[in-house]
Design a binder for these strands. Structure first.
Lengths: 195, 195, 195, 195
DNA sequence: CATGAATGAGGTTTCATTCAT
DNA sequence: TATGAATGAAACCTCATTCAT
């Protein structure tokens, strides 16, 4: 009698372990054996569920995306929330978001040399950009304010700002506690006329 | 008498080759043999000038810093220049700056897991932050405007913005040509009241 | 199910190959590839079974010990045997014992600079010393002779004598055939009043 | 004007440094650079004075011999001395003799695989054996005792004994202080009827 | 004579992948 | 389906030797 397992579920649990290992050790120090140990399986099992190591890493990046999207979702499904409430969820201020953002950061560099990763990153960025756009539209609509002409530029600028804060929060953590990240983002939103 | 060489110059040329290779292949695909081939020396020579591979990579990161600082220097030594002229030099809009920024990006990720790299990155960030501060002070002084209270927050926000643009420019190059990067930075400066 | 192997057995066979190579080429000329070739495995397999080269060498030294102890055991499990029968088994007079003693000799030198090896050597020496002690006790008891006061000194002296003969037998083999080694040991035992 | 140096003297000082390094680090960890550093010259100079590394090591072994012979000479040139006085000089009981014996030990192992080293060691052993012989003859002559028949065997046995003590003194130093080495040798001489 | 920069062969070690079970 | 033993390519690094100066 074969062991009963859910194929997708197994893949997912391996990918989650991979994301964890990447955030802990960095992309280049991530070994299949470490992922296996954390997931409670052997390397043989991993390559049984994934074509190769690259496929595992790709899945790990998607896990990181999902963590972030889920965090944002938790906010937007509530009845009342501000633009800040949504965007601040992308900042590395909690253990979980730090992990997800660390993975993301690791892949930015890799996307320079690997077109496939670049595609994945760009695609995700577009989803993320769309969320920011939605939030801006919702804000101006809710406050009965006219849409700025350059809404796209504003939204791009906003995501760039957040990316910049993510880096500072990750690389220079002691100097960039949650409050500082929040304050700078808050100020920036104010400059754009968003409270 | 022994062969006469300029030790520092030799180290530098190897480090430059290393930076070139890193920007082309990424940090984890950077092999000593590739660096050697580009520098016209053997791996033996490299380890003759550097303790180990890590030391070579560290030197490469410093080369990337230097490239950027030099670019900025070229602007500030002129008689007339704007804040934008200075800051835009950090954006990956030319081959040279793209290369330097690619190296920088590669090390961001590594700084998460290696404290030494983090120190190096933080130190460099401080130099860079100082330049931005100077430019803001110079601007307000030149235009006889009062200094904003939150000058530091503004300047931090500005560097975060630039870091974000760097990532977009590197990861999503086709979508982020020079003009777009410049426009967004320009807009951002306007929002801050800086022309 | 995975390939079934006896882990300990595999380790042992590699260690035996290592001992063989050490005795042939010397410790410093012993390469993992040579050991692998002799054991019929690749270097990858070796480091799969051992942490590193050092662990392989340590295991090889233990193999050498075991060979010697086993040779002695073969004697002592018989009904009748003399002190000489036992001790002479430690001399490099057969192919097997020559090999074991060559390995032992190789590690003596190494134990000067590596405390761990020294520990191993000292520990083995104590086992060996104990065997000599037992033989002396058995002899005096069997012949109803009173124990000499300085039994320990005598036994230490005896092991030193044997170590000296081992060296001569290994280094100056043509001049030290089996008979000469045996004769000198025999004489020495006579001097101690042991027949 | 060329620097005035004594060629032989320079060779000697390098060989002395080599012996020092060998006794400190062991034969296989002895690098030409370390020898050079200790001798105050560069690797280039070393290979200028010696054909290759092997020649340096050979010279180092001879230095070790000389140290030992010199120590014995210091005794025999005095008016009164015992057999023990002479032989005990070969034991590793002083810093100098420990160093010389450590080098000797290192080469024993090497002599198994390298015939040239074996020749060197055998030749030296013969000189040493001759000294022991002389001492025995001198003793029996001085005490008007008849020469034992098996003088050669006795003398061989004696050198073997000393070799054995050298090993114990080097490998298990804490357990084999000077007094113990001396006591065992003394006892052994007594057994041979030599006071 | 003397130097030491440069070499490059060759060693150990790592680790993704394969495959017999 | 799942395993993990075995592989072997490829990386880094060491260091004796060479040779231009």
């Amino acid at each position: 009698m074969p062991k009963i397992v859910n194929h997708d579920q197994r893949r997912k649990s391996i990918a989650i372990a991979a994301a964890e290992v990447i955030s802990r050790n960095g992309l280049e120090s991530t070994k299949l054996t470490d992922i296996g140990r954390l997931a409670g399986v052997t390397t043989g099992t991993i390559t049984h569920y994934f074509d190769d190591k690259d496929a595992v890493l790709t899945a790990a990046l998607e896990v990181a995306y999902d963590i972030m999207l889920e965090r944002i979702n938790e906010v937007t499904k509530q009845s009342e929330y501000s633009v800040f409430d949504v965007l601040s969820k992308a900042l590395p201020t909690s253990k979980k978001s730090r992990q997800a953002m660390t993975v993301w950061l690791a892949f930015w560099s890799r996307s320079i040399t690997e077109p496939k990763v670049a595609q994945q990153q760009i695609a995700f960025h577009h989803s993320w950009q769309e969320i920011v756009n939605e939030q801006l539209l919702r804000y101006f609509s809710l406050h009965n304010e006219p849409l700025p002409e350059s809404l796209d530029d504003i939204s791009q600028s906003l995501t760039a700002q957040i990316n910049g804060l993510i880096i500072r929060g990750l690389v220079d953590t002691p100097d960039w506690p949650t409050e500082r990240q929040h304050r700078v983002l808050q100020n920036y939103l104010s400059t754009l006329g968003i409270r």
